Amino acid sequence: MVLQEIWKQEEEETLSIITYGMGVHWAMNATQELGVQDRVEVVDLRTYIRWTIRPYLPV
């Protein structure tokens, strides 16, 4: 419920780009060229995978 309230409070539309590897660099460069860095979130899957797999790795 809290996330729905936060979503309603945003006045501008935003975009999330979920990618990895060179796609991260391409997305970052594109947002800079278009001047929309403040409205675009680039998520690098390589950092997410390390975070989710870590609890399952042997110690």
Score class of each variant (00 low, 15 high):
Val2Tyr: 04
Gln4Leu: 12
Glu5Phe: 06
Trp7Glu: 14
Gln9Ala: 15
Gln9Val: 09
Gln9Gly: 13
Glu10Thr: 15
Glu11Asp: 04
Glu11Trp: 03
Glu13Tyr: 10
Thr14Met: 00
Leu15Arg: 06
Leu15Asn: 05
Ile17Val: 06
Ile18Cys: 06
Ile18Pro: 05
Ile18Leu: 10
Thr19Pro: 04
Thr19Gly: 01
Thr19Lys: 00
Tyr20Phe: 04
Gly21Val: 08
Gly23Pro: 05
Gly23Cys: 08
Val24Gln: 00
Val24Lys: 03
Val24Leu: 08
Trp26Gln: 07
Ala27Met: 06
Ala27Gly: 02
Ala27Asp: 00
Ala27Asn: 03
Met28Trp: 06
Met28Asp: 14
Met28Ser: 11
Asn29Asp: 14
Asn29Ser: 15
Asn29Val: 07
Ala30Met: 15
Ala30Glu: 15
Thr31Phe: 03
Thr31Ala: 08
Gln32Ala: 09
Leu34Gly: 01
Leu34Gln: 01
Gly35Glu: 06
Gly35Pro: 05
Val36Thr: 14
Val36Ile: 15
Val36Pro: 06
Gln37Glu: 15
Asp38Cys: 05
Asp38Val: 07
Asp38Gln: 11
Asp38Trp: 10
Asp38Gly: 02
Arg39Leu: 11
Arg39His: 13
Glu41Trp: 05
Glu41Arg: 00
Val42Phe: 01
Val43Gln: 00
Asp44Val: 00
Asp44Leu: 02
Asp44Asn: 15
Thr47Lys: 14
Tyr48Asp: 12
Tyr48Asn: 10
Tyr48Met: 13
Ile49Arg: 10
Ile49Leu: 08
Arg50Lys: 08
Arg50Ser: 13
Arg50Met: 07
Trp51Ser: 13
Trp51Met: 09
Pro55Val: 07
Tyr56Gln: 06
Tyr56Met: 00
Leu57Ser: 09
Pro58Thr: 01
